[in-house]
Computed example of a mutant assay.
Amino acid sequence: MGNRYHHIADDLRRLIAAGTWPTGEKLPAEQKLAARYRVSTPTLRNALEVLQSEGLVEKRHGAGNFVRRPGQRLTYASERAADAAVGVGVAAGLNVSHDRNTVKADNRLARLLAVRVDSPLTEYVFVGHQGASPRSLARVYVPYAVARLGPVEGNGAEGPSPWGDDVHDLLAAAGIRVAATTERATARFPTGDEAQLLHITRRSPVLAVERVAADADGRVVEGALLVLPGDRSEVLYTGRSAADKLEATE
């Protein structure tokens, strides 16, 4: 009985492949599916979580479970401004909502930004959607000690970047130049807040990118925490040769 939910997941997977529930259609209520398979609701939810982790089913909070539409693979790439081809792949069909808040640095943000705990920060939150599905989450922070920046206006008709790149434009307008950026990518499970914002379960792996930008003096001017669902995302890092770096400085 311990593997019962795997058998249910196999049967649901078969029914989806057979077209019993077409792409985008809502699955029967969890209570009805539990009764159909003669299991408890928690067991049924375990089966659905297997399909959610595979990208076959999407749980929309307050609405139910839906057969997931095939989506374009989302790529987060370094050297994005220098690679137009990557930019097209990132932005196609992606709508980005954004918000701006004033927060205080907790222990993690204090370490990330090299500031004291409780230091005031400007927080920018960017959520990228493909249709009704959230696809990316980016939280970007700028210490008040660096600059007190205004809201992001977006990037013309294309709207703001899902990665918060528009914050760099605000820094540049304030006379602050980013000289170096360090990024660290890890795979992990989402926090409860991240799972809710991205409409995924706590058991669905995510790709997390921690980004720190510094000026020529080594002062941290921006920190960003990016989260992408692991089943549809990839991180691409592009390095430049010593000759290329020398040419860029000339």
Rank of each mutant, 00 (worst) to 15 (best):
G150F: 06
L27S: 10
V125R: 13
T20R: 07
A243Q: 07
S241T: 03
V96D: 14
L56V: 02
G24S: 08
A85E: 15
E234C: 10
G223A: 03
A208N: 10
L51N: 02
A195E: 10
V127W: 08
D165N: 09
V178A: 08
S161V: 13
L12F: 08
R38I: 12
I176Q: 09
G192M: 00
A185F: 01
A82S: 11
A248P: 10
D83F: 00
G89T: 01
P229G: 08
R4Y: 13
E79W: 02
D166L: 01
V167N: 06
G175D: 11
H61D: 07
R116V: 14
S97R: 13
A224D: 04
G164E: 06
R111Q: 06
A47V: 07
L44T: 05
N46F: 12
D169C: 06
N65W: 15
E123F: 03
L226Q: 03
G150D: 07
E30M: 11
Y141I: 11
L12R: 12
H98N: 10
E79V: 04
L51E: 03
G164P: 09
R211K: 14
G230E: 12
R13G: 06
K104Q: 12
T249M: 15
A243H: 02
L246I: 10
A242P: 12
R219K: 09
R38W: 14
Y144C: 01
R184Q: 09
G218P: 12
G131A: 05
V67C: 02
L236K: 14
R36D: 05
A174T: 06
E247L: 15
L228W: 03
L51M: 04
V103G: 00
G175L: 13
V167H: 02
D83G: 00
P162H: 00
A77K: 07
V212E: 07
L171T: 03
V206H: 14
E250G: 14
S78R: 09
V221W: 04
G159C: 08
P160G: 01
P162I: 01
R13C: 03
V117Q: 11
V57G: 08
